[in-house]
Design a protein around this nucleic acid. Structure first.
Lengths: 206, 206
DNA sequence: CGATAGATTGAGAGTTTTCAACCGATGTGG
DNA sequence: CCACATCGGTTGAAAACTCTCAATCTATCG
């Protein structure tokens, strides 16, 4: 049972809201007032550090939920949620969400499962930063982002913020990968020729 | 309501197990069979990468729970849990845990709160790796580890694995901090003279 | 007291960022 | 539909940061 399956039957009750590409749904340090379920579109979660460096923490597509972490932690948001495309979503107020949790016991369990998986993913990213060269992190980032959302034209900057490096390092990596015939550039976009080959690369290949 | 408060009243029912310092409670890739609540002692969660680099992900002290992430994600463990001191804990089997969850509705809610907070902490560590020099990360790591567990003699290696750098970088940082009068070395141990001062340091101070 | 594990230090190498200049794609208004 | 402004991408060189490696030192424990 996924998060969305558990929620789906209730969604008819809630308002649909839309935001244009580039608009911010919520900002770090705000108190959470709602939960958002994406009906269609794409949203990124970005943290901006004191020195202004931006880190791309998570990406949310169709049927994914955002804002739940803060509500369930009883904390303010720790990052900014920004639309990467025009996006439609169902908005559920905190009190409506709490009513749903009481009405439906499986809902909390499936949200917890999702958070527990996100925690693994996040902790393994820390390990990757310890272990993998920036080139290799770019490779893994494009495999993740481009395979999951093939129609999105990811900018070098977005990939860099996801891989935790600079846009120049992303450019240099993509140039090398094209020479290796593992990707194909098309204007600002690109496509993956060989996901297996990309995932078999190691630190030594660069 | 914390995780431990919600569990505490049930603990009398469970076996107490002890492990010596250095012993492993569980390893990455194993299927979770139990939940562990620390009665007394200290446990670290470490991930070892393909290339053998170790990352210190979380530390668990008295009244803290471990093994819950994997059980709730329906996943195998993603890291190794190792005793940093002789440690006593209550061991709860997966099926006993599931019974507890059914018996006590507040339990899952408090575990979820804890996971949601851990996710923030982990994601902000990724941001720190993007933004902060290794010296500054060492500073923040020693403030966290030493203030939370003052009696533990943390090795340079453990601090390095927590801060995501090398033991040499930890040594160099500690030497500088002692010259700045912010810490005091005592044999292999050290103590913090001025937590405020340490936390006010920036990338530019090194 | 000796053995061992951990800490320190310096020099050199490697990786990644920074900065600057230039190039090319995209899309908008005339 | 073209011209052009703008935004994003590319490239190279230099600087900065951190690690690696090796030698030496020191604390701790049996």
């Amino acid at each position: 049972m996924t998060f969305y399956n558990a929620l789906e039957k209730h969604l008819i009750d809630f308002h649909v809201v839309t935001h244009k590409k580039g608009e911010t749904i919520y900002r770090a340090d705000e108190a959470p007032r709602s939960l958002y379920i994406i009906k269609d579109g794409l949203v990124g979660l970005f943290h901006i550090s004191e020195n202004g460096k931006e880190t791309f923490l998570r990406v949310f597509g169709k049927t994914q939920i955002l804002g739940h972490r803060s509500l369930l932690a009883y904390e303010n948001y720790h990052a900014n949620a920004v639309c990467l495309q025009d996006t439609e979503f169902y908005q559920i107020s905190a009190s409506e969400f709490n009513q749903l949790l009481e009405k439906d016991n499986s809902l909390l369990r499936s949200i917890t499962e999702s958070l527990a998986k996100d925690l693994r993913v996040s902790e393994l990213r820390i390990s990757d930063l310890n272990d993998k060269s920036s080139y290799l992190r770019v490779v893994e980032s494009i495999v993740y982002l481009k395979n999951k959302y093939p129609d999105q034209v990811w900018t070098r900057q977005e990939i860099a913020e996801f891989a935790v490096c600079t846009n120049e390092t992303v450019t240099r990596t993509l140039t090398k990968l094209e020479k290796m015939n593992l990707i194909q550039k098309q204007g600002r976009d690109f496509s993956l020729n060989n996901t297996e080959g990309l995932l078999n690369l190691t630190n030594e290949d660069f």
